[in-house]
Amino acid sequence: MLSLLQEKLEGAFKKLRGHAKISESNISESMREIRMALLEADVDFKVAKDLIENIKTKALGEEVLRTVSPSQQIVKIFHDEMVELLGRETAPLDLGQPQRILVAGLNGAGKTTTSAKLALLLKKQGKRPLLVACDVFRPAAVKQLAVLGESIGVPVFQPSPDEKDAVRAAQQGMEWVKQQGGGIAIYDTAGRQEVDDELLAELVKIRESLQPQEVLLVADAATGQQAVSVAKTFNDSIKVTGLILTKLDGDARGGALLSMKQVTGCPVKFVGVGEKMEQLEVFHPDRMAQRILGMGDVVSLVEKA
């Protein structure tokens, strides 16, 4: 996948070789190719369009470096712009009072797994994490969190099997946390589609009850063009504070993250890179930019030039 894109870009830029300066006429075709590459990486088409416009402005008139190919040079400009968009700094979790972390997202995004992974991460940092199961809807969702909690040695609040109200489950969870003597409590919620007003309203109520200082939106790296709508709707209703992209151990390029980042303005806090509990990593914007472009090595090459 990645090398294919690289080939494509190289091909598109061939025509640029031998030009001293990058000009409108000699890059228009290349820009079309890059646009296609970005769209293939699931970058939102409006975001891709803006990105291309910005790059054009930045690239026009630049001297073509001798030591690297013009294609590499433009990729570097793209890369830098994308790093800017993704947020240059990595953002840690806000662990201030009241030490509550709410985890939300679409069905199957990876919320439950990520909640447990976060707990393990905090535990390794010597903190005292607690897990609260608020998904009283999906079959065996509570059990799933309980099994994961047990595997990492973190206490889990399990609402009664008769409890059908997620808001009440969250409130009972808060009580339980108090009884446990406090700690950093991670609240795992049920998956929901952002067009489901009723379920979104439920999430708003949970957020109001918890008043968490972190609201993390978990999204699958393979998300397509709906990423904008997803991020916007979740953010508008529960005011997201951070993003987590999962399943980056696959070959999805993760262009959706650009949209989610841009729509919410929230930092990307972690990425999931596997099903195992320790497979959660801090986010590196530069690596992500390279992944979306599919051209890691080129960047360091140009950096040296």
Binding site: A41, D42, L106, A222, T223, G224, A252, R253, G255, A256
Partner: peptide, 12 residues
Amino acid sequence: VDATTGGNALQQ
């Protein structure tokens, strides 16, 4: 296949 998936679904 999750309908929310983008181009990666084809690769899947």
